Simulated scan of single mutants.
Amino acid sequence: MRYEKGRKDASRGRILEVAAERFRKNGIAASGLATIMGDAGLTNGAFYPHFQSKAALVRETVAAALEDQSDEIRQALASGGLAMAIDTYLSAAHRDNPGKGCASAALLAEIAREPPETRQLYTERLLTQVHQVSVELPPQTPDPEGVAFAIFATLIGTLQLARAVEGTELSDRILAAGKAAARALIEQS
């Protein structure tokens, strides 16, 4: 049976989209291929023409999620600078939608356990994002890359804490404290 042109690419894209959301929402280990394929509207057997393994799917999913995040950082920086990027990242909307949110905040512990190829890809994408932020810092900043790393650590840790606690009031306080800490890093640079 012949399929229309582009169907394989569309199926691959759908698998990546579903996997990205599942991984960020439920974690890599908790997201089985059967569930991902079912959510994508495909059979388990349709997985291997697209990806050699789950590790390959994870690598491509992380790469795509970090590319999307770099685009979001670029847009936030262009529209409102670092303050806008911080406010957008540490928003209640971002906190409440992990499936569509930051791959780092959702997956860092699991990425650390992935094969070296995935960790290398993550490193490259992270360095791109750090550079995006470092060039926005005040020109007198003595170590812009170091400050950018500190900002990322503050944002990611804050989001993880805000998602982990029980109760919106406490979670909102954590987000506010993280915003203040990130801004202080910029002001002190």
Rank of each mutant, 00 (worst) to 15 (best):
A83E: 11
I73Y: 07
L82N: 01
D143F: 08
Q129S: 13
I86R: 00
S134A: 05
A34V: 06
L127G: 04
E72M: 12
L127K: 10
G81F: 05
Q52D: 15
N97D: 14
A46Y: 10
N44H: 08
A103H: 00
V135T: 12
L82F: 06
R59E: 12
F51T: 01
D68P: 00
V135M: 06
Y89Q: 01
L137E: 02
V58P: 00
T35K: 06
L127Y: 03
A55N: 12
Q120C: 08
A64M: 06
V147G: 01
K54I: 15
F152Q: 03
A148K: 00
L66K: 15
A46G: 13
H94N: 11
E114L: 07
N44P: 08
V135H: 06
E110W: 04
P144R: 11
E72S: 12
Q52P: 13
H50F: 09
P144M: 11
A83W: 00
P138A: 15
A63H: 14
T88Y: 05
S53C: 04
A93H: 14
R113G: 03
S53D: 03
G80L: 03
S70E: 11
M84Y: 13
V58R: 00
G80H: 08
E67P: 02
Q132C: 13
D71T: 07
I111F: 15
S53A: 08
V133Y: 02
E60W: 13
T141R: 02
H131Q: 06
V62M: 02
A85C: 09
K100S: 04
K100Q: 04
D96L: 11
